[in-house]
Design a protein around this nucleic acid. Structure first.
Lengths: 217, 217
DNA sequence: ACAAATGGATAGCGGAACTATCCACTGACC
DNA sequence: GGTCAGTGGATAGTTCCGCTATCCATTTGT
């Protein structure tokens, strides 16, 4: 398979494929001559993975590279490869540690201990969660970490399913890839479902409260 | 309050405040002289809202403007104002309607009808969900819309709570603002919890499967 | 024999979100 | 009342990102 065919197969332009090759996201094809190389199904699949991470996961190129490097390194554990996507998904803020975020962060850490969730200390997710809580409070939402207990239990159940599914794969590469896609794409799907639910409920109650342009409730 | 004070209060630089004023995200202060204006708590609050939409919701400036315009327009219903954020959250893809996405889209629409969720026909969420499903299938996940039933039911319950909470606010402006923050920030918080759950479960099973760098399962 | 395509290198582009500079002016302190 | 940092307003510049476009020497298929 040559570039033009790879491009047709994957829907990614030749120029962009070249760019990904340069950036080290896609491994070079098998060289058959000074200016000829041969690509295979692995390249198609890899391109699909790259596009999924970029389009659905909205990872920046650098994070995609870091993730794929971990994926390709056989000595990286499934768990660590997976950690790489996590870091890519959450853009780590520079240092904005406002006092109320710090307070929320301590609550988050206590909550994680209570749940017996062992999280890498410099993972971005706890900080992001603390930030979200702090912002909700700024806007007068009376929110506690306990309010997330149900969501956490449900997330844990589905995480167990997903991880078991990935670990059941034939080989490590497939397991890591499955984990990546599962993380990124399921997250997106669930977010969309939440949005749909909000829109549906909002529409329903709008009708109940009277149709047409509304005045204050 | 003058710019420098507003800047200190909100943590947004003067240059950026000027930029937001120019872009129409922030309404001008009360003019007291040719080159003097007075800002108040409303401006601080608005800046916080803008930053939340940009930082947490990752909305582009244009979407923030569209949203805030709907918020400020008294004749826009709560539901419609809320629809504006939805459109901003999902970056609408140009036209990439691959055949497998179209098929998934039909399933999504049927699923929505089954749930009796009335969704605006050109809302981006159903398309995004269909895309996610199509991608999962490309990677051999045997996924059905029915697999999302539980998540949907749970999303609906929390949406009902959120909408009721917002509709209970004293005035329309507060209700819309609450809805916005709730949508964007809760979504983020739930996503982070999902990531934490995955990391915790992954770490736990990693240990069970043996520590240190892993070979194929 | 020769047009089309390839790999490799380098330069350019367009959008987004700020940031910096300049200016004429003013309000607040000395 | 002088002065000077700060202000609003306008305009231009910067940085980053994710591609695109162009060039070129080689090679391939016909």
């Amino acid at each position: 398979m040559k570039v033009s065919e790879l491009s047709a197969e994957s829907g990614v332009s030749v120029a962009t494929i070249k760019f990904y090759l340069r950036e080290g996201l896609l491994h070079a094809g098998l060289q058959t001559a000074a200016n000829q190389a041969d690509y295979d199904g692995g390249h198609v699949r890899r391109l699909r993975l790259i596009r999924a991470l970029i389009d659905v996961g909205e990872l920046p190129i650098a994070a995609v590279r870091a993730t794929l490097t971990a994926v390709d390194d056989e000595s990286t554990s499934l768990h660590d490869a997976f950690g790489a996507v996590m870091h890519g998904l959450d853009t780590v803020p520079p240092d904005d540690t406002a006092p109320d975020i710090a307070a929320a962060r301590r609550e988050v850490d206590a909550w994680l201990r209570r749940r017996r969730w062992k999280i890498e200390p410099d993972a971005p997710a706890p900080h992001a969660l603390a930030t979200a809580v702090a912002i909700l409070r700024q806007f007068d939402f009376p929110v506690t970490l306990a309010d997330f207990d149900e969501a956490a239990a449900s997330a844990e159940r589905s995480a167990e399913f997903e991880v078991a599914y990935a670990r059941g794969m034939a080989d490590r590469a497939a397991a890591v890839e499955t984990m990546l896609i599962g993380t990124v794409v399921f997250e997106r799907a669930l977010a969309e479902i939440r949005r749909l639910a909000l829109e549906a409920v909002s529409a329903r109650t709008e009708r109940r409260h009277g149709s047409g342009p509304r005045r204050p409730v």
